[in-house]
Simulated assay, not measured.
Amino acid sequence: MSSPTVVIGSDHAGFDLKTAVTRHLQETGFEIKDLGARSKESCDYPLVAGDVCREVLTSGHPGILICGTGMGMSMAANRFPGIRAALCTNEYLARMTRAHNDANVLCLGSRVLGDELAKSIVDVFLASDFEGERHQRRIKQIETLNANS
């Protein structure tokens, strides 16, 4: 059986945290599809967010996006129909966004979180399941917001 895969990307500000999270996930048995950045050289977060979101939508694998605050990545990711990106700053938010919102992309802020807290948030996000039922109805409502405008 193959290892579960996580799609990950960052801008230059998130590069060090992405490196730490990637190493942690590989040590716990995950395969990583890293879509950039490849260094701390300045790059544009919307382009990385787009690459990760397209891969998440195509593959069905969860995604992780990291920038300085997590806000820019979250905003860019949520422009993609079918992506439900959540900026999480603690484990409770990570658990609940999976359970109630079926989030498929986790956004983290490297200037907001320390490495150990970020790794713990990632672990909870990836271990949590969507509860379905009444929450599924709300997910459908979210997905149709653009179609009704």
Rank of each mutant, 00 (worst) to 15 (best):
V124Y: 08
C67G: 03
Y45D: 02
G29D: 13
V56L: 07
S74M: 12
R95W: 15
A103I: 00
E41T: 08
N146P: 15
N78T: 12
I8C: 01
I83M: 06
G29K: 11
N90H: 09
S110A: 15
K140I: 13
R138G: 04
F125Y: 08
E55P: 03
Q141F: 14
N78I: 14
T69G: 02
K33C: 08
F130I: 04
I121G: 05
N90S: 06
A127N: 12
G132K: 09
S110M: 08
G60F: 14
D11H: 04
E41K: 09
C67I: 05
V48T: 05
P81S: 00
R84V: 02
C88A: 07
R138Q: 08
A103C: 04
K18R: 03
R84S: 08
C67V: 07
I32G: 06
S3K: 03
V48L: 11
E116S: 02
A99G: 12
S149I: 15
V112Q: 09
A76E: 01
F80H: 06
E31P: 05
K18H: 04
V6I: 14
S128G: 01
L35W: 10
G14N: 12
K40L: 13
V6H: 05
R134E: 13
G9R: 01
S39H: 11
G36H: 13
M71E: 15
V7T: 10
Q26M: 10
T5A: 02
L35Y: 02
E116M: 08
T89Y: 15
D11A: 08
K119F: 07
A86P: 04
S3L: 14
V124M: 05
V6P: 00
L93I: 15
G63I: 09
M96D: 07
F15E: 10
R84L: 00
Q141W: 14
N146V: 11
R137P: 00
V21R: 01
R98I: 00
L57S: 11
H135F: 09
Q141N: 10
N101M: 11
E143I: 02
D11E: 03
Q136P: 11
L17F: 05
R23N: 14
D34N: 05
G114F: 04
R79T: 05
G9M: 06
D129H: 13
T28G: 00
L126C: 10
S128K: 06
M71G: 00
T58W: 07
G60V: 02
V105N: 10
R98C: 01
V7K: 05
S59G: 11
V48I: 10
S10L: 03
M71N: 15
M1T: 09
S59N: 08
E91R: 05
P62N: 12
L113G: 04
M73I: 04
P4R: 02
M1G: 12
A147H: 09
F130Q: 07
G29E: 04
C107K: 03
V7M: 04
A103G: 03
E133W: 14
A99H: 10
V112R: 05
L17W: 07
E27S: 12
F80G: 08
R38D: 14
S39E: 09
K140V: 15
G72A: 03
Y45N: 04
G50R: 14
R138C: 03
D44V: 12
R137Q: 13
